[in-house]
Structure formats: structure tokens, C-alpha cells
Write a protein that binds this DNA or RNA. Sequence first.
DNA 1: ATAATATGCAATCATTTGCTTGCAAATATA
DNA 2: TATATTTGCAAGCAAATGATTGCATATTAT
Lengths: 119, 119
Amino acid sequence: MEARRDVFQAIADPTRRAIIGLIAAQPVNVNAIAEQFDVSRQAISLHLKVLAECGLLNITQQGRERICEARLDKLNEVHEWVAQYHKMWTGRLNALKSLVEEEEKEATSSPKKSKHIHK
Amino acid sequence: MEARRDVFQAIADPTRRAIIGLIAAQPVNVNAIAEQFDVSRQAISLHLKVLAECGLLNITQQGRERICEARLDKLNEVHEWVAQYHKMWTGRLNALKSLVEEEEKEATSSPKKSKHIHK
DNA sequence: ATAATATGCAATCATTTGCTTGCAAATATA
DNA sequence: TATATTTGCAAGCAAATGATTGCATATTAT
């Protein structure tokens, strides 16, 4: 039931990402959030629960309202995971760029070998 | 069945993230990947399919083998999504820091108007 | 040609998801 | 106090997910 509940899982759902976008700037109460979506209030409530369970959301009771505040810093895990690869792929692009430039120079002097493409 | 298939969904699964980590450095064939995990080859095959469907993976047939190559640049969507919030949460920390510093200065000098921070 | 290897595909299954509706509890307002 | 508002909780459901097993197919090695 409440098995896997990590940040990656939480942001996998587009509605939940939208919720984060909605409350990133400032805290909003549950109903106000729900009004922004087509699904039922309960559906949103469940999404909020998921977000809260992985720390992306802070819920504070205020009278009969519950104010949801984003804890964006909890996205750090995702940020770091992607960042390591970001380094790799940008680095790789640079390497490719230099390779192409190198090839262009060679193009005027020596012939190139063609690659096989197996289907 | 094959409904939502985006990058966020793809990296939500820890096994799939592990697969990406495994082939990020260099291309690996399907069985070699499967051997690294406890689940069946077919389970991995399915994960690879998911990764391939959202472009995170490139599969090239080579004889009877299929070589899986990571397309890390496809993580850019995630990178950008997180980056916008990364700015906010680090910016927020900085804002808090400058606010504190500002307060400290004000304690001794004349009051000043605080800056607005627009995104 | 035959056997071994690398994989995909299909059927099946237990869980997990994402939603919905209805009902209950707490708090604010008239 | 009676009523409206804001939410949570529980039951029920269809679809998606992740995994398994068995069988088929293509390619390579003997």
C-alpha cells in the first residue's frame, strides 16, 4: 500500500508536479489547490499526502484550513542525481563537437570509412 | 497499457535508475545488464523497453545481441524542471542570508528598502 | 546441420495507482 | 445554536505496473 514513497516517485505524476509548481511561490490551502484541477478534492488530497510523505510538502493546520508549503530543497536528491549525468552528457557533446571539427579537417585529405547499420 | 510514458515516469523506478547508471559510461548488451540484477531477464527487458520508449535508451542490434546505449541528454527535461526550483530554493536561502546580513547592518546604520526578488 | 546463445513476445498474476462517492469531524460564521 | 466550510477517511474500482514462466526466433559456434 504505502510501499515505495520517494521523491522520484512523487514527481513522476504530472498532477503532483503541477501542484508543486502551484505552491512553489507561496503556501496555499488544500481547497485552493484542488480548485485548480479537474479531479476531485479527494484525489488532490491524496496527491498532497504523497508529496507530504516524501517531505516535498509541509502541511500546517491553521484553524480549519491546512496550508501546504513546498519544501523545494527536498528536490535536491533529484537534482544531484540528474546533475551527475548532466555533466556527462554536456561533456560528451563537447567531445562530439571536437570530433566533428576534427573530421571536417580530415575530410579534405583522407577518405572516411562508412558505418554499418544493423536493424 | 502504454499510456503515460515520459522521462519522469521512467526514472521513478529505482531499477531503471540503476540501469541508467550501469550504461551511462559505456553501452552494454541486454543480458549483461540483466545479470546485474536479481529480477528475471524479462523484467529487465521490460524496463529497457520503458527506457527506450521515452528516448533515454538507444538499442542497436548487433548480431544476436542488442546493445543498450544511454541517451543522457534526454534527462534534460528533468534537469530543467528541477533547475528552476533549485534556483528558487537556493535563492531563498541566499535571500534569507542577505536579509540577516541586512538586518545586522541596519542595526547600526540607517534603514533601507528591501529588494524584491522576482524569478 | 545441430546445439548454444541472446532476446522478444504472450499469458498471467499480485500490487499499486489514481479516482470517485459518501460520510464524519473539526472549526468558523450567522 | 444551527449552518456552512474545510478536510480526512474508508470503500470500491478500473487501469497501470512490475514480475514470472514458457515458447518462439534469430544468430553464432561446433
